[in-house]
């Protein structure tokens, strides 16, 4: 199954339209698309607005490929389950995000194993074919936690004393009293 997802925030009809067209030419492929608040409703592949977290994880686990926006939620979840991904970065100029950080994210991610980046929607079919042929999942799953040194540093900081005196009773109660 190929899981198409645009994350959970803004619509991304450019990706959904391109994948609906791809689905029309690939009738044997089982697919599911999470389209969010997009105005375009696919005609050639099953779709949902938004999966809850459990259904989302179940779908990622069952997929052989993810085709997605270049969002870290999708990319990290795919990596945690060892799934290959094809990414189409959102463009700020097309109103697809607040800014162009997904192009920066994609530029960094494209060298990582299991990740292919389509710079334009026209590149998607070739990226999908290459990902499916290469079985990129061989990259293997990453662990579920951040590196221990990072965790230790945050833990030590959080465990420290409050830097400011806590007003007795709190500001809210003082105002009420």
């Amino acid at each position: 199954m190929i899981f198409v997802t645009i994350g959970s925030m803004f619509p991304f009809d450019r990706l959904i339209r391109a994948m609906d067209a791809w689905a029309a030419t690939s009738p044997g492929e089982e697919m599911l698309a999470q389209i969010g608040a997009g105005g375009f409703e696919p005609a050639h592949m099953p779709w949902v607005r938004k999966l809850d977290r459990e259904a989302y994880v179940r779908t990622v686990r069952g997929a052989r490929l993810l085709v997605a926006h270049a969002g870290m939620g999708t990319v990290i979840t795919a990596a945690e389950y060892g799934k290959p991904v094809v990414l189409l970065p959102r463009q700020g100029a097309l109103g697809e995000h607040n800014n162009d950080h997904q192009a920066d994210t994609a530029a960094w991610l494209r060298t990582r194993p299991g990740i292919r980046v389509a710079d334009a929607e026209g590149d998607l079919p070739a990226c999908i074919a290459a990902a499916l042929a290469g079985e990129d999942a061989a990259a293997g799953a990453i662990g579920a936690h951040a590196p221990q040194a990072f965790l230790d540093r945050i833990r030590a900081f959080v465990a420290g004393p409050r830097p400011r005196s806590d007003p007795p009773g709190g500001l809210s109660r003082r105002r009420r009293g």
Binding site: G7, M9, G71, M72, G73, I76, T77, L151
Partner: peptide
């Protein structure tokens, strides 16, 4: 979304 997926790892 991605913010929470990163927090889960922390």
């Amino acid at each position: 979304g991605g913010h929470w997926v990163q927090m889960r790892r922390i």
